[in-house]
Structures are given as structure tokens and as C-alpha cells.
Computed example of a mutant assay.
Amino acid sequence: MMNNPYLDLLAYFGIGGAHPGGIQLTKDLLSNEKILPNHYVLDIGCGTGQTAEFLTQTYVCRVTAVDNHPIIIEKAKKRLENRTELADVVKGNAQNLPFSENSFDLVLSESVVTFTDIDKTLSELFRVLKRNGHLIMIEMTAESPLSKSLHKEVCNLYGITDVLSEKEWTEKLRKAGFTHVEVISTPSELTQTEITDIALSENIGEELYDLWDEHTSLLEQSNIPLGYRVFRCN
């Protein structure tokens, strides 16, 4: 997940809740889960720690927040410095997590897996999840096959290798071992998430501002066949 200019953008801008639906979608999804104080939650690709902070404040559960970007880790630790009794911030790779099998009651992945080797990461998330636990995953999804030019544009912009359909995501989740894969009904349009949480770094390069403009321009294109899905798996 390193050496990706788009992830650098999120890190240097310190954007919290950059995933589709933002923090409000996260809150809505978690309100339907039975999260108890004795539960262990993994927030993979945690960003600046917005979701981890919400979890510790609302559910008083134990949260492990993992990311692989050093600037992101620094900002997450700063946000959670007064929550250390409940939140651990760990630098780690989603494709090779430093945790034992059956460690977590809930795994959250908010627009993360598509930036990794998808099969490896899904296998890792399955491995560290307790057998009666759940994975909630939000991911960009192709609503219909992308043209070659659009596929190339999207992959180059976000530093990814593919844009999967709902069916392809479901197949990969089942291949990783998840026996129950549910698609949670949400508005599926991929639109610009309102940014209300930001922690800017100093001396941000002009190229990252240009990249943000490219990202915004892409989402403003009419009839673009990109959306997102929320998957709940066990």
C-alpha cells in the first residue's frame, strides 16, 4: 500500500472519513452491530483514526488501528493519544498482519482492500477474524464494465490494478473463506465525500493538489459507471 500518490494525498492532507459515505455511513453501519466493551475491533487502513476514535468513545471497546503509511500513523497516534487505554495504533501491512488467528470480533475495512493485493488481504482479514465475528467492508465497485480508457484512468489515478464488480467482490470474499456475504443496502453512487475532518501537513507539494483536482473531476463526470458497496461477512 506504499508508493501510491493518492494515499500520499490522504496522508498529507490528513483527511478523516475519505471513504464513500464518510463517517456518517460508518456510524450508521456500526449502530446495527452489537459491539460490547469486551470486544476487540480491527480498523484496517485506519487513516487518521477518525473511526477508531468514534469506536472507543461510543462503544468503549478495544480497537487496534492499523495503517502502512508513516504520516498516517503519526496523525492517528496524535488523535488517539488520550485514548491509549482502549486504542492501539500499529504500523502494519494488510497483506501480512502481525496478529494471531481468531483475534478480532469485528474487522472494519473502509475503502482499503482495493489498494492492496485483494486476495492476500481478504485471506488475512479472514484469518484474524474470530469464527463468530464479522467483517464490514466498504469498497469502490464497477456498476457495469468500464471502458479500457476509463479503467486505465481510474487505476492510474488511485494506484490500483482493477475495479471489481459486486459479483467479483462477492466471489473473492467467498474464496477467502467467508461463508455468508451480505450486501448492505445503501446509496451506491460514488460521489465526493464531504470533508469535515482534516489535519494538513506542512509543505504539501503542488502535485498533490493537482491529484485532488483529478479525483474531484473524475467523480463529477456524468454517468460514470462507478459506485460502491458495503459488504457484511462472516
Rank of each mutant, 00 (worst) to 15 (best):
E168Q: 15
I224K: 05
D105L: 08
K130M: 08
V90T: 09
V90R: 04
F54A: 00
A176G: 07
N223K: 08
F104L: 12
L211M: 03
F115C: 14
T196D: 00
G205C: 06
L200N: 05
A11H: 02
I184Q: 04
T84K: 03
Q192C: 00
N156K: 13
I138M: 05
S103H: 10
L108T: 14
C61L: 11
K152I: 01
K27Q: 12
K78W: 05
N68Y: 07
S217V: 02
K172P: 07
Q192L: 11
Y158R: 10
T216K: 13
H134E: 08
D67Y: 11
D88G: 02
E81T: 10
D213N: 01
L211T: 04
S201P: 01
T121V: 08
G22V: 09
V90S: 03
E189T: 13
N156R: 12
M140I: 15
Y158M: 07
F231R: 08
G16P: 03
Y209S: 06
T48P: 00
V230P: 03
G16Q: 07
L25C: 01
G92I: 13
G16Y: 08
I15R: 02
E207G: 00
V154R: 10
K78L: 10
R229M: 08
Q95V: 06
K120Q: 05
Q50N: 03
V63Y: 11
E74L: 07
S144A: 14
I138A: 07
E110K: 09
N38D: 15
L129C: 11
L122T: 15
T116R: 02
R232H: 11
I198C: 12
N234P: 00
P187W: 07
